[in-house]
Measured scan of single mutants.
Amino acid sequence: MQYKLVINGKTLKGETTTKAVDAETAEKAFKQYANDNGVDGVWTYDDATKTFTVTE
């Protein structure tokens, strides 16, 4: 399945996608991506759209 990440950071904004077997695996990949880019915020997930959002 394909999952999307929407980033609403202080210095980084945008979107990225990943393919993963489940939401938990996608979340780990997205959190690593956010961490690598210095984004630390509040996470939400919408199962209907398979979209994670992180807001600083």
Rank of each mutant, 00 (worst) to 15 (best):
K50S: 06
D47M: 08
I7C: 05
A48S: 11
K28G: 06
A20D: 03
D40F: 14
Q2Y: 14
T53P: 00
E24T: 11
G38I: 04
K13P: 06
V21Q: 11
V21N: 13
T55L: 05
K28V: 10
T53N: 05
T16V: 15
A48T: 12
E27Y: 15
L12E: 05
E15Y: 12
W43E: 00
A29S: 10
Y33C: 04
D40C: 12
G38Q: 07
T11W: 14
L12Q: 10
K50I: 03
T17N: 08
G9V: 13
F52T: 00
V54F: 03
A23T: 09
V42N: 09
T51C: 06
G14H: 13
V54K: 00
K13E: 05
T49I: 06
T25W: 06
D22H: 04
A34C: 14
L5F: 06
V39D: 01
E24N: 10
V54D: 00
K13L: 08
T49M: 06
Y33I: 07
F52Y: 05
A26Y: 01
T18Y: 12
V54Y: 02
A48K: 11
Y45S: 02
T51F: 02
N35M: 15
L12M: 13
W43Q: 01
K28F: 09
A26E: 00
T17R: 07
T18I: 15
T51G: 02
D36E: 12
V21Y: 12
L5K: 01
V21E: 11
K28H: 09
W43M: 04
E27S: 07
K4F: 15
N35I: 14
D46R: 03
T18A: 08
K28N: 07
T11K: 12
G14R: 11
D46T: 05
A23K: 15
G38V: 04
G38P: 01
T44N: 08
G41Q: 02
K19T: 15
Q32V: 09
F52W: 06
W43S: 00
K13Q: 11
D47W: 07
V54C: 07
T16L: 14
D22R: 05
T11V: 11
D40M: 13
Y33V: 05
V54E: 00
E56R: 03
A34P: 01
Y3D: 02
N35P: 01
D36C: 09
T44S: 12
Y45I: 01
F52I: 02
K28S: 08
G41W: 07
K19D: 11
T17M: 12
K13C: 12
D40V: 14
K28E: 08
T53E: 05
K13H: 10
L5Q: 01
K19Q: 15
K4R: 12
T17G: 05
I7Q: 02
L12Y: 12
E24K: 12
M1T: 15
K10Y: 08
L5E: 02
V21C: 10
K31A: 05
F30P: 00
N37D: 03
A26T: 01
V6C: 06
D40Y: 14
T17S: 10
A20R: 03
I7F: 06
L5R: 00
V39K: 02
T11M: 12
D36K: 10
E15Q: 11
N8R: 10
F30D: 00
T55F: 07
A23N: 09
A23M: 13
K31T: 05
M1W: 12
V6H: 05
D47L: 06
T51I: 06
D46C: 08
A20S: 06
A34H: 01
I7G: 02
D47I: 08
L12I: 14
T16F: 15
G38N: 10
M1K: 12
A26V: 02
G38L: 06
M1I: 15
E56Y: 09
F30I: 02
V42K: 09
I7T: 03
Y33R: 03
Y3E: 02
E15G: 10
A23H: 09
T51Y: 03
F30A: 01
V21I: 13
A34K: 01
L5H: 01
A29C: 11
A48G: 07
Y45N: 00
K4Q: 07
E27W: 14
K28Q: 10
G14W: 15
D47S: 11
K10P: 08
K4E: 04
T51E: 04
T49N: 09
N8M: 13
D22A: 04
V42F: 10
T44R: 06
L12G: 08
G9H: 08
G9D: 04
Q32P: 01
T49W: 04
Q32F: 05
Q32E: 09
N35W: 14
Y45G: 00
E27Q: 10
A29K: 10
G41R: 01
E27T: 04
N35S: 14
T55Q: 06
K50H: 13
A23E: 07
Y3S: 01
Y45F: 08
D22V: 03
V6G: 02
